[in-house]
Every structure is written in C-alpha cells, then in structure tokens.
C-alpha cells in the first residue's frame, strides 16, 4: 500500500533530510534509497523531487556539488546536509514524534 500523496508531499522535506543524513547522494540515488529503505513504500514522483531538492538547497538546508560520475556518464549533483539542515531535521523529527504521539493518544482515548 502506498502512502497518501498529500501525506508524502507534506513530509517530503523530512523524508529527504532523513535520507541525506546518512551520506551525500544525487537525485536518482535518493529515490532508490527511499524505495529500498522502505520496501518500496516511498515511491516519489521523480519530477517533483528535483524542485524540492533545489528549494532545500536555496533554504540553506542542503549544499550541492557536481561530481564526476563513477560510471563515466554526465556529472552528478550530490546533495549533503548542512548544519542548518541537521538542526531542521531534528526539529522536524520532534514535530513528527509529537504528532505521532498525539494520534496514538487519540486512538487510546486519552489526550
């Protein structure tokens, strides 16, 4: 079962920052990583990934650098988390956990 598109869209920044925390990656690698780490649950619309990466770069959460491809193709643009990006990731994680706890509380009938 795939996640609701709005849920995915609303949490895209968190997902991207979470993936890039492990290591710098380029666009296609991020897509593959998201799929493999979630058993295909996160299946991005590829075309929407790049504008999101550029936006995060512009916000200073990511830093990007072109590097030669290891397979001889065109250069790849690698994205890595900045310090600001790491802090934002922590904040977003906390928000998500609070939200999750609140949902769990609702399920349990308590607030």
């Amino acid at each position: 079962m795939k996640p609701d598109a709005n849920l995915l869209k609303g949490n895209l920044d968190l997902i991207l920052l979470e993936i890039l925390e492990a290591a710098p990656m380029y666009g296609l690698e991020i897509i593959n990583e998201a799929q493999s780490r979630t058993d295909g649950y996160f299946d991005f619309k590829e075309g929407s990934l790049y504008p999101a990466l550029h936006r995060l770069e512009q916000q200073g959460l990511l830093k990007a650098e072109f590097m030669d491809s290891t397979t001889g193709g065109p250069r790849r643009k690698y994205y890595r988390l900045t310090d600001k990006g790491s802090k934002t990731l922590e904040q977003k994680r906390s928000e998500w956990q609070r939200f999750n706890r609140a949902i769990e509380a609702l399920r349990g009938g308590t607030t």
């Binding site: 619309k45 590829e46 075309g47 929407s48 790049y50 504008p51 999101a52 550029h54 936006r55 512009q58």
Partner: peptide, 20 residues
C-alpha cells in the same frame, strides 16, 4: 516517461529560481 511530465519540473524550478 518515468521522470514524468516535464512541466512538473519546470513549474517547481521556476518557483524556486526565477522569482527571487
């Protein structure tokens, strides 16, 4: 085809880069 409609990229990129 897998990458999807080029307009998705275009619209997103214009919003990020052109306006500022």
């Amino acid at each position: 085809e897998e990458l999807g409609d080029p307009k998705t990229i275009r619209r997103g990129m214009i919003g990020v880069h052109t306006m500022p």
